[in-house]
Amino acid sequence: MLVLAKSPAFTSTPSRAIASPSARSSVDSPSSSPSSRSDTPDPDDSACATRAQAGDMSALDELVARHHAAITRLLWRFARSRADLDDLVQETFLRMVRGLPGWRPHLPFSHWLLRIATNTGRDYFRRRRVRDRWQVPAGSSPGETDAPTPEAVDPGADPAARAASEEVKHLLDHLSPDERALLTLHHLEGWGLADIARNYGWTLTATKLRAWRARRRLRALYESASPS
């Protein structure tokens, strides 16, 4: 119990051992963290986005095609179901289209889009929190005998990985939306706290404090969920 409080998995550098690029040999796809990408704008992206700003639909198609895999992968960490993932990815690209007139070519397009995606993910957590708060628990009404059939979980290419991902998401479900977004990016995507702070417009100190509190709660949840 006490070991957990000081253990590397839950202290300030948990994902260094877990999610740092060097330790992620088993993970096929690279991290989407902004620091893992170049800070200089990709000329192809910039050219495409500039043409899309001017109303070129083929440039818009190209932007979607270039980025949809990375955005899907990032938002899969947030989504609880396939249908939610569809909605989140679509919402991200719709926000991109709406915000395109405000994008400036000196900013890396991928960073800008990543920020839209993470904000979409955090908004999703907030909506779910509100919905869960007002939702009547299954079986609480007198006439209800059976709980609704849960949505079938797509086992994916790697059922063990899918099950583990579901378990982590289920644990994170108990945290506040901001904490969930923070730990989702930190633990599952391997983002550094500085990247997360910059992305959400938080100060680094506040982000560290929030991460510390979230990890403490997560630790308690994990301990209560897994008998040792």
Binding site: I18, D28, L85, G156, D158, A163, A164, E167
Partner: peptide
């Protein structure tokens, strides 16, 4: 966590 990170999204 390591197993969860290996989870791949479905194709859209």
């Amino acid at each position: 966590l390591r197993r969860a990170q290996a989870d791949q999204p479905p194709a859209l």
